[in-house]
Design a protein around this nucleic acid. Structure first.
Lengths: 259, 259
DNA sequence: AGCGCGAATTTCGCATGGTGGAATTGTGCG
DNA sequence: CGCACAATTCCACCATGCGAAATTCGCGCT
């Protein structure tokens, strides 16, 4: 499924930086201003530590503090976010809107960033029960539709090397946990023209995905939703549009770079 | 002018965090992937230090590394940026587009974040020579159109307190450097219905701005461009649209919060 | 207005986490 | 293949980040 658990970043690195971003993510997840104690608690830090980091982030413009003394994300992040957005995500915006309209489900665009699937754009379904995978989230490829779609374009050796690094963690009874199962699915994907994730990450969730050809960084578009709504009929209808969408986002003859 | 120099953040705070964001801003400013040595040089850090910070940022998803080993901003920032965007910036997007169309110059939306003007949305002019102020940038209020527009709505005591904290640095011969001059300009702004920045930050640059009423965090919209194009005629035409725009973004009767 | 309480902010000694020069490894080119 | 340059890793050292304790602030209640 497209919302396979995020791989935990390797421990190590600069702790202060990780902690600062943990605070930013806590504020982002809250979708409303938070008191210091709440941010600190959410991020799992002692209050003075959180305070000091938030003070730094505030001074830099990435956090703001309201008169209520609550903290919220600052405008500096807007600028960074806009400039982090690949050209492909820009081009894909109307395409994703149309996919959502046709299928009535959440439309996603993802790329392969190292060994992880990284979601770079999304148009959420208008249904109340819907798949929600935040832009910027990263997941393991083997249990996600877009991941399998992209891997289906890679040489077998490269798939094996990737899997050797990531492993094949099981999320549900249908998750692929052997290389052979995965490679078989990728072969099926190529034959069919699209990948299916049928509850491999999360029971009751279904996703169909098609790789976007012609980019040196693999990319894929998908439609994901609850199995009860993603019937075979819906899949059949949506797949044509999905394939058309992928083709429309195809890279140029010069194997267009994603940046 | 709307592109008054950014106030340097107070020194201190968590150095590692500042450095990490310096690297992100270096990548953002480059608008293309950069080699490690180049990022490090731009950010003014030794290569191994930059490497370590970038590694951390990469592991967290805020930086990605291409096969060429170059670094670029990562998709994690997209998500943060989107969630940092205030509701007002969303609402203002079509308004700014229309302002740019009418005036043919760069349209901006800014708020007062503490003592600084913070740009939260922008539609750049289509002219090749145009004002470019990145979303997320912060400037001192006294030398910017939007800053003066917002201050014109504040009680005098509050303006005096703000200026006591920020000072009134001179950027050009027309910059206000005394409180009395500034207060006079704010009075003129109120009388006129809009603020003018006539080369106060940058010679040859002109900006007109109107405060958006009814928000507990001060906000303002502006049009800025080169003086040679921002004639009195253009100003006269654009001001009506600017005032209409500000009114359209007016906060509700409950003094709508910006978050 | 005064008080109490909880939250936010500041302080500062300490130790750990961050640093960066040197060494090692990797990559691309001739 | 060899070389030069770039990237990455290593690790001793100490500067910076940490967080418990102290202080200050802000709010609500009487």
């Amino acid at each position: 499924m497209d919302s396979a658990p995020e791989r935990v970043p390797a421990s190590g690195g600069v702790q202060s930086v990780s902690r600062a971003f943990g605070l930013l993510e806590a504020l982002a997840d809250a979708h409303e201003p938070l008191a210091l104690a709440d941010v600190a608690a959410t991020a799992g830090l002692p209050v003075p530590t959180a305070h000091r980091l938030l003070r730094t982030l505030h001074d830099l413009g990435y956090v703001r503090q309201l008169e209520s003394r609550e903290y919220a994300l600052g405008a500096g992040l807007i600028g960074l976010g806009e400039r982090a957005r690949p050209a492909l995500a820009e081009r894909a915006a109307p395409v994703l809107v149309r996919l959502e309209e046709v299928a009535g489900e959440t439309a996603n665009l993802a790329t392969l960033d190292g060994d992880l699937v990284s979601y770079i754009a999304q148009v959420p379904s208008r249904h109340r029960m819907r798949m929600f995978t935040e832009v910027g989230r990263r997941v393991l490829p083997h249990a996600s539709g877009v991941g399998k779609a992209m891997m289906s374009l890679l040489p077998e050796g490269r798939v094996r090397a990737l899997v050797a690094r990531t492993g094949l963690p099981r999320y549900t009874a249908t998750t692929h946990t052997t290389v052979d199962d995965l490679l078989q699915d990728l072969a099926d994907t190529r034959r069919r023209g699209f990948a299916i994730d049928d509850g491999e990450q999360e029971v009751g969730v279904r996703c169909i995905a098609v790789a976007v050809p012609g980019h040196n960084v693999p990319a894929a578009v998908s439609i994901s939703g609850p199995s009860v709504r993603m019937t075979d009929e819906v899949v059949r209808t949506a797949v044509a549009e999905l394939i058309r969408a992928a083709k429309g986002l195809q890279g140029g003859l010069r194997t267009q770079a994603i940046p």
